[in-house]
Design a protein around this nucleic acid. Structure first.
Length: 110
DNA sequence: TACTTGACAAAAG
DNA sequence: CCTTTTGCCAAGT
């Protein structure tokens, strides 16, 4: 198994997310093999500012495309970042979530 | 070693 | 559509 910690694996996946795209915590956990640990993905995000290089955690949303962690970014910062990348956000959730959804499992060749 | 805590997810009411 | 409940797993104390 990998030498990296669970957090680092999550960070690597998140860093792979291209601009204008988003993914869900569950999808990341699933691609890591620990699909039951979707909560751990969010938990890792909590420490994301401690990661180096920083991870675009604003591209990670919950299964509904809802910006659950917007408050951790501070107000509307998360929305602004997504909008800047071309992701429409309305009522704290991603518009056309399924269209902008980026599946790590596919990009990883799985 | 055991208990508590979560930026979740899916199901049920 | 919204709220509540259950399961899940790793990290910190």
């Amino acid at each position: 198994m990998p030498d990296l910690n669970f957090y680092d694996q999550v960070y690597q996946i998140v860093r792979m997310i291209p601009p204008g795209r988003v993914t869900s915590y569950g999808a990341i956990a699933n691609s890591l093999g620990t699909k039951g640990s979707s909560r751990m993905v969010g938990y890792a995000m909590q420490a994301c500012p401690a990661a180096n290089p920083p991870v675009p955690a604003h591209r990670v949303v919950n299964s509904q495309g809802l910006l659950t962690g917007k408050f951790h970014f501070g107000g509307d910062l998360m929305e602004q970042l997504l909008e800047s990348e071309g992701v429409k956000v309305e009522n704290d959730k991603v518009v056309d979530f399924k269209k902008v959804f980026w599946d790590p499992a596919i990009e990883l060749g799985m």
